[in-house]
């Protein structure tokens, strides 16, 4: 970790992973519930963004409701070719994130496309470029989860 979080940082993180106010001065309203000033809240968010402890501060969209496509995909890549294939896959702007995992299926990435139809064509392009099959595992059902990631 780049820099330790103090109690106020944690309170901000635990309170505002959702439900950020939508009003004229939202930082002021949020700061009030946290017992700090608007200016301090803004400064702390800025610092945590710069330290890359936060990925973003803003909306998380529901891709399907925006009319886009979203899917989790997996590949089995021999170790010796892994880095090369990872570069090829990551070069696609539709690849939102990509993790190596310790399994025969060792590459897992999320595809986010502007239309649902585009998922299949990107998959085909990835298969053609890399020479390996892509296993497409789109979400069929989402089970309810509490919102927060507590720090």
């Amino acid at each position: 970790m780049t820099e330790a979080l103090d109690a106020i940082d944690r309170a901000i993180l635990n309170r505002y992973q959702g439900d950020f106010p939508i009003c004229s001065r939202p930082y002021q309203e949020a700061a009030q519930t946290l017992g700090i000033s608007e200016e301090e809240l803004i400064k702390r968010l800025q610092r945590m963004l710069e330290n890359r402890q936060l990925s973003r501060f803003g909306p998380m969209y529901h891709a399907e409701r925006l009319g886009g496509g979203l899917s989790l995909c997996a590949m089995r890549i021999p170790e010796a070719q892994f880095d090369k294939v990872a570069d090829q896959v990551n070069a696609f702007p539709e690849v939102a994130h990509n993790y190596a995992r310790d399994h025969r299926f060792n590459m897992w990435f999320v595809l986010a496309t502007e239309t649902p139809e585009r998922i299949d064509s990107v998959l085909q392009e990835i298969e053609q470029q890399t020479g390996f099959p892509v296993y497409n595992m789109p979400k069929k059902k989402e089970f309810f989860i509490g919102l927060k990631f507590e720090v």
Binding site: M1, T2, L5, I12, L13, Y16, Q17, G18, D19, F20, I22, C23, S24, L45, N51, R52, Q53, L54, S55, R56, F57, G58, P59, M60, Y61, H62, R65, L66, L147, F149, V151
Partner: peptide
């Protein structure tokens, strides 16, 4: 802007509005 963002939150187009954490950088 406020009205449209609120409508997107209410209808679920925006799932959440706020902090998106980086688990890894937070020690997870």
């Amino acid at each position: 802007v406020i009205e449209r963002i609120q409508a997107m939150v209410d209808s679920g187009v925006i799932k959440r509005l706020g902090i998106v954490v980086r688990h890894h950088e937070l020690g997870y």
